[in-house]
């Protein structure tokens, strides 16, 4: 059998892109999926101290399911400790290599995303802290509002480049 080295490379080989007031970035970090039965209660902030130094964000992903997103890449032992803490009501699956994180920020963020999202993104209907799974164009995405003018998208790795390119196209009118 021929030897071939495993290569580790990002799903999207791109530096941050600025289009006028819009900024597209790939912040990296870790993405963990929490899987529970429908009706399971979300982990409280108190149950996430293991990752507290990594400013975790909790994203709704349907009944009994969430994504935990951290800016700092978590170590294996940190993930194991969180899994032990949340068991048995929630299972933790490390999706950091399976999904890709894209951040969109700047005043026109909502107008740009509206080109591909069928949700009402008005801050009264989709306030800061809201997250949901939906389509951006034809690509399944978990969309979260992280600020008045900033959003984060989690997308399956194989679709990351396509979504990134779509977002650039949608951003073009702004700069």
């Amino acid at each position: 059998m021929r030897d071939s080295a495993l290569m580790r490379r990002p799903a999207v080989a791109s530096e941050p892109v600025r289009c006028g007031d819009l900024l597209l970035e790939a912040p990296g970090g870790s993405i963990l999926q929490l899987l529970g039965k429908a009706g399971a209660t979300p982990p409280s902030d108190m149950s996430l101290p293991e990752v507290a130094g990594a400013s975790p964000g909790l994203r709704n992903a349907g009944p009994g399911q969430w994504f935990v997103v951290t800016d700092r890449e978590l170590t294996g032992p940190e993930i194991d400790a969180l899994a032990a803490r949340l068991a048995p009501s929630l299972h933790v699956v490390d999706q950091s290599s399976g999904r890709f994180r894209i951040r969109v920020s700047g005043a026109p963020s909502r107008r740009m995303l509206a080109k591909g999202v069928a949700l009402d993104l008005h801050p009264e209907r989709f306030p800061v802290g809201t997250a949901t799974s939906t389509l951006v164009g034809q690509i399944g995405t978990n969309l979260a509002r992280t600020g008045q003018d900033s959003f984060e998208l989690l997308v399956l790795r194989g679709f990351a480049q396509s979504l990134w390119d779509d977002l650039l196209l949608m951003s073009r009118e702004f700069g």
């Binding site: 349907g62 799974s133 939906t134 389509l135 399944g140």
Partner: peptide, 9 residues
């Protein structure tokens, strides 16, 4: 109906 691209319920 399966909410394939949403909550998957």
């Amino acid at each position: 109906w399966h909410h394939t691209s949403g909550c998957r319920r």
